[in-house]
Design a binder for these strands. Structure first.
Lengths: 229, 229
DNA sequence: CCACTAAATGAATGGCATTCATTTAGTGGC
DNA sequence: GCCACTAAATGAATGCCATTCATTTAGTGG
């Protein structure tokens, strides 16, 4: 069977105009764009705990069931949000900067955007690109940047996936509680870990999350940079 | 206020015996170990969609509310599962192999374990280590390995966090649908991405997820390895 | 003005985590 | 041998949730 209902593909099924045989319905209050915008506004105001279909409908002055004429499920709303957010990820450096700097700028921007939306990560990470056109556009820009710099073609996707995995994982760290490394009463039995945590804290100009992200990202950039030819 | 109720800390609050002033209660059917074991078995059989407090109680022949005498919330059960799973992550190579190989073995093992339990990742990623003693033990083993190889102490935590972020992100990829990169009808407008996907597929002995994980992991190992002194 | 249609409605469904007053049954002290 | 105390288990209730569906509403092209 074909993959699940695709939000994007359904809105313009490649060349086919939306058909209608007879009269138009009444002026629609709702469509996917309206829903996406309202959903994002709601999430920013109430977080993902407060983001329910009922609450979303309320902000649109509409019954909850009305949403289901435009969207198959709550998950589909999350997909719409994620694709919209992806357009805020800055890929412009691939046109203006060196490859190294472009990857750096893109990765920091990507993490920045999704660190405020970590509940979307499980959705994005396994989402077919065909269901998220703006996300696909981002991949295209990044792929083009990799190709231009002489990156071996058969490894472009792997490199991007690896970077993205690192970015998603790192996005969680940004929101972690400050005392996450406090080993509490078990400090005595974990001397190496505990002393490493202290050493980090003593240094710490950057936040721990930023320090880890920077360290890992530079290693990935250096490692991948060496593959170019 | 102190951090949330700690499963592990509550079972042996460092030196204090569990107090009781008067008679013991009836022989308990339930405790955290029993719950953890049953929960893991249920997850393996029914997945995380089928994992509800009611279903868990049913497998234990107990009322759902009985669970709340031993556990504060469903989230706490997830924490118990995650900590238990962490003991299946193999850190033994840090005692027997070179640093490079030990990191490699540990990372593959870590990804392997959690790729079957991705719904736990949002929980683990922001969980204070004090709430997960077996996880803390893993960090201790890894920290010790990094220290032994002459890794700069103030960067040990950052390096581990970076590796872990990469591992968590990569765990999602393992479960992604095979057609995740199929750009479908929009292939024409994304030539660089589409050709990169084809090049990968043409190569592809490994799964795409394995190829990306291997590529990223080797870059991180090489980059971090160079920091040793 | 009619037939058709998509959109919106409101009530209903079933599932969920969690709470709480109450009951149950060991145990240590007398 | 009984009593007082306790932790554990119960079952009913709560409130929230996503989702479904039969029905109603109101533009529009013929």
């Amino acid at each position: 069977m074909p993959s699940a209902t695709s939000a994007a593909a359904d809105s313009h099924p490649a060349g086919a105009r939306p058909r209608r045989r007879a009269g138009r319905p009444p002026a629609a209050v709702l469509d996917q764009d309206t829903i996406t915008t309202a959903a994002l506004r709601l999430v920013r105001k109430s977080g993902y705990e407060g983001f329910t279909m009922a609450a979303l409908a309320r902000t649109l002055n509409v019954a909850p069931s009305a949403l289901y004429n435009h969207v198959a499920s709550k998950r589909e709303v999350l997909v719409l949000i994620q694709d919209h957010l992806t357009s805020f990820v800055d890929v412009s450096a691939f046109d203006t900067e060196s490859w190294d700097q472009a990857v750096r700028d893109w990765a920091w921007s990507y993490r920045e955007v999704f660190s405020k939306h970590t509940p979307l990560i499980p959705v994005i990470a396994v989402l077919p690109v065909a269901d998220a056109p703006k996300t696909l556009a981002m991949y295209e820009a990044v792929s083009a940047g990799f190709r231009r710099t002489g990156f071996p073609q058969e490894r472009i996707i792997s490199a991007i996936v690896a970077l993205e995995s690192f970015i998603f994982g790192s996005a969680y760290d940004v929101t972690a509680p400050a005392d996450i490394f406090d080993s509490g009463s078990m400090a005595a039995s974990t001397p190496n870990f505990t002393s490493a945590v202290e050493r980090l804290a003593r240094q710490g100009l950057e936040s721990p999350a930023d320090a880890a992200f920077s360290l890992g990202l530079e290693a990935l950039i250096a490692g991948f940079g060496a593959l170019r030819r």
